[in-house]
Design a binder for these strands. Structure first.
Lengths: 329, 329
DNA sequence: TTGAAAGCGCTAACAA
DNA sequence: TTGTTAGCGCTTTCAA
């Protein structure tokens, strides 16, 4: 009757109940034939005494770790951090539901040693890549490793499991809506083309905006580059500005304000991505809205399905919302 | 001679070398007596064939996971994210050096279920709390759990392992420097008092600024609260504004600019914390500079020392830099 | 439906 | 200095 500090094992449970370890194991896992009555007895006992299976022992026997690795760039922009944070929350929730935990790994361009560590040491059963670049060492490495993985975002490689927002449709739809406002000239300020989504957004933009006259400035990353693009838009005679993401939008807005450009009277402004960065801007900004947490959760579930050998779709596209606000009135 | 896909085990290594598993194990761990020559032979073979010990097996035998848990609030402000990100990088680097990996866990006020999962399932050997609140469920829970843990930041509880910047000295020193500028009246805009560091900063401020006349506005979290505090400072007749962190500073600066207050002519401005948020403000902002990555790294090393039973200091305080810039000229 | 026993890959007494 | 052997706690074949 005395409680020991030593953690309980499956054997303790078996002894206490006068049955064998096998039976206990089967009750927990649900594998193998077992009478519902003994099963319930075991489950009740376990719940009452809060026995917890030792994950190492379980892992050793099953060749699993019940861990996933979540990989993000170590050098993210402030703005991307909030995306990764939401996305991570989705991953964590979904992982916890299936009794998995999440190892965090950072990579930077040219340095994927952290990822290699985890994969080579087999500390995770699968990997979620939080962002995909055009030419991505991490993706190449994961492909060669043989470990299951999924990327959040799109890849050109059709063999890679991917979960993404439907950026093409979303950007195209928002662009069409802007087109209906009969702008004279529209400028897109796009982000780093190494990041695939930026190219995708551009494609959606082109698809939706034609045949309206327009210009595109890609690879705007630094504040200077963004401001230069704004100047470009102004001298192009644009009366509508579309920003690839909220960080770009944020700096563009600051610039426009400084120049005394009125929004939306002189210039309509919209963003292909929204987040907390631009949310309390005046006037409120028309933008696309996605659900990063859902993205993470889906990626996670997909990965676990994949790990456990279930059939999974190669590509999953999630929905979006168009938020029409004062900035494009 | 044929390569199998099956992963190598310690036994394979032993057989290949014609020695026993024990000898191989000892060569790797460095524990127990062993001749340098056999040891080197084993190490060479391992390096050449890249054998990796199975972490589950090792963990099972040692009752360890070789994982640490990194706990951050799930609902962080954008500004704190960059702190956690840098800090995490320090943790990851230090952990990797000692062959540990890092599980990520989020908690929110009133919900520490993620933390409980990891602790109860014994998925980590120790926990790093990335932030400490005044009355912190996570700290209380960790104390009761018996698992080693360390907090980044300070706690009032002397039994808790903690690693922090020396905020008191730093804030006090910066305040003294400001005092030497002979301000008429100084206002401190402080953050959420639930977060201990905000109280600490206030203490440092008081210590350094006296006997200059001053006022303090604490618990400024929302933009509105910060702006109200700026108004307060203005009507108090302040000609020097001290902000507890860069987020507060950022919003305060925006407000001052909008009101046409010149910096530093009408109002000197300094921040007790700097980051990317305020870095390209014009004029440049006087602030305290810390090294979050070092904070994370120290916490991590300390924790591992603790886990392995080494003696560790209860409290570690790290240095800082005072960056004097144009905003307080 | 249940149980005995072997095995997952590693460590550590204990012997040699 | 090295090896033998018995676990660590769980799963799973095979037999009952």
């Amino acid at each position: 009757m005395e409680e020991r500090l030593k953690t309980k094992t499956i054997e303790d449970v078996a002894n206490a109940l006068g049955i064998s370890k096998t039976t206990v194991s089967r009750s927990i896992s649900g594998k193998g034939r077992i009478s519902e009555i003994t099963r319930q007895k075991v489950l009740d006992y376990i719940a009452a005494t809060d026995y917890r299976p030792n994950p190492n022992a379980k892992g050793l026997a099953n060749a699993r770790t019940y861990n996933l690795a979540w990989v993000i760039p170590g050098d993210s922009e402030l703005a991307s951090l909030s995306f990764f944070q939401s996305c991570l929350q989705g991953v964590l929730d979904a992982a916890a539901q299936q009794d998995h935990d999440v190892l965090i790994v950072t990579v930077s361009p040219g340095n994927i040693s952290g990822l290699k560590r985890v994969v080579e040491n087999r500390k995770a059963d699968g990997v979620i890549l939080g962002q995909s670049l055009d030419k991505d060492m991490a993706v190449d490495y994961m492909k060669s490793s043989g470990l299951p993985f999924v990327v959040v975002g799109s890849t050109y490689d059709p063999e890679v499991l991917q979960v993404d927002n439907d950026h093409i449709s979303a950007c195209s739809e928002l662009s069409s809506i802007l087109k209906m406002k009969k702008p004279r000239f529209v400028t897109l300020i796009g982000g780093d083309q190494e990041i695939i989504v930026n190219t995708t957004r551009r494609q959606g933009f082109e698809a939706g905006i034609n045949p309206v006259r327009h210009s595109v400035y890609m690879n705007c990353v630094t504040v200077e580059e963004i401001e230069r693009a704004v100047e470009g838009a102004l001298s192009d005679g644009a009366d509508c500005l579309v920003c690839a993401d909220d960080r770009i939008c944020y700096h563009a807005l600051n610039r426009l304000k400084r120049d005394g450009v009125r929004i939306p009277e002189d210039m309509r402004v919209a963003s292909f991505y929204n987040s907390r960065l631009t949310e309390d801007f005046e006037p409120s900004i028309t933008s696309l809205h996605y659900d990063p947490a859902e993205l993470g959760a889906r990626a996670c579930r997909l990965l676990i399905d994949r790990i456990e050998g279930r059939e999974v779709p190669g590509r999953t596209l999630l929905g979006y919302e168009v938020l029409l606000k004062a900035s494009t009135r």
